[in-house]
């Protein structure tokens, strides 16, 4: 039986704005995350991702509802939770005006880590920043700052990592490196992003959040099945493109028809509609038929 490490119960958060206006940043969120799971939260800007992570990492308190993190109540036992978690908001939660080593040493002392010198060197080597440790962080590149921040949060050996947009502004190589490092770790990862690629590569469970609410949640397989139900096809055609478009638009099993260069892109409701589609094609000179893989991004765009 899997062990639930994060459970939220009807979490909501309201923010007071000017003119006594209240904005609901998080609305009735109830989720469960198992130990060791890599959980991805996808949503557009302002959807409530950072608010949810801030509440779960004990940075702010919810307006209503509660959460249990590794058996501890988020409000009553916040200090106990802080021993088991690490938070990374963005990719550079570190001091710029001191060296990388001083940064790591400081956080080691704050977390009461013994024999930190060896641990710092080891983790810095693992992340490839050992040569830069004695330099001021302000001289680091964005990727190195991100790596240093990851070193910082991993040094305290937390059970859960809360990461809010950790790969924002990083190049593909660094992003992939970070994804691999997170994948390798046995820790529970709760990551929020609007980068679908990161979530798709790293997470085994994904939730979509929009307008403060979780609108869809499922395992990667469940999300994949959801995607497989719908089929997108590119039809290569040069002559009679307009006529074909008209014919396709009349069919109820086709949900969308989009004009593309040298062809059309259509979306079918179910795979078994292929036969009906081919019967339409018989009247035309089709030069290419290609099925397009649907990504989580496509589902995300449709959901939000």
């Amino acid at each position: 039986m899997s062990n639930k490490i994060i459970e939220t119960f009807n979490l909501s958060k309201d923010y007071n704005l000017k003119g006594k206006k209240v904005v609901r940043a998080l609305d009735d969120v109830s989720i469960q995350i198992n130990e060791g799971e890599k959980f991805g939260l996808l949503g557009p800007n302002g959807a409530g991702k950072t608010t949810l992570i801030s509440i779960l990492s004990t940075l702010i308190q919810p307006s209503s509802g509660y959460a249990i993190i590794d058996g501890d109540h988020i409000i009553k036992n916040a200090n106990k939770i802080r021993n088991k978690i690490a938070l990374m908001l963005g990719n550079d939660m570190i001091y710029y005006r001191i060296t990388g080593y001083t940064n790591l040493k400081f956080f080691c002392k704050v977390y009461g880590i013994k024999d930190y010198k060896e641990k710092i060197i080891k983790i810095a080597e693992e992340f490839g920043i050992e040569k830069w440790l004695n330099e001021y962080v302000e001289r680091y590149s964005a990727g190195m700052k991100c790596k240093l921040t990851l070193c910082r949060i991993l040094l305290s050996n937390p059970k859960i990592l809360f990461l809010d947009e950790p790969t924002l502004g990083l190049d593909i190589k660094t992003t992939n490196f970070i994804i691999e490092k997170l994948k390798e770790s046995d820790k529970t990862v709760f990551i929020s992003s609007h980068n679908m690629d990161v979530i798709e590569k790293l997470c085994n469970r994904i939730a979509f959040i929009n307008l403060s609410k979780i609108i869809k949640m499922g395992s990667k397989d469940e999300i994949s099945k959801l995607l497989q139900k719908r089929i997108r096809i590119f039809i290569g055609i040069i002559e009679n493109k307009k006529k074909l478009r008209y014919d396709l638009e009349q069919e109820d099993f086709i949900t969308s028809v989009i004009d593309k260069e040298n062809g059309l892109e259509i979306e079918l409701l179910e795979r078994n509609n292929y036969n009906r589609l081919f019967s339409i094609f018989q009247k035309y000179e089709i030069i290419k038929i290609q099925e397009i893989d649907l990504s989580v991004e496509d589902l995300f765009l449709e959901l939000v």
Binding site: T58, L59, R82, L89, G90, D92, M93, Y95, V110
Partner: peptide, 13 residues
């Protein structure tokens, strides 16, 4: 603004 305060506030401290 450096975002180091959230790091401190979420530390066992």
């Amino acid at each position: 603004y450096w975002k180091t305060l959230p790091a401190l506030m979420t530390a066992p401290f």
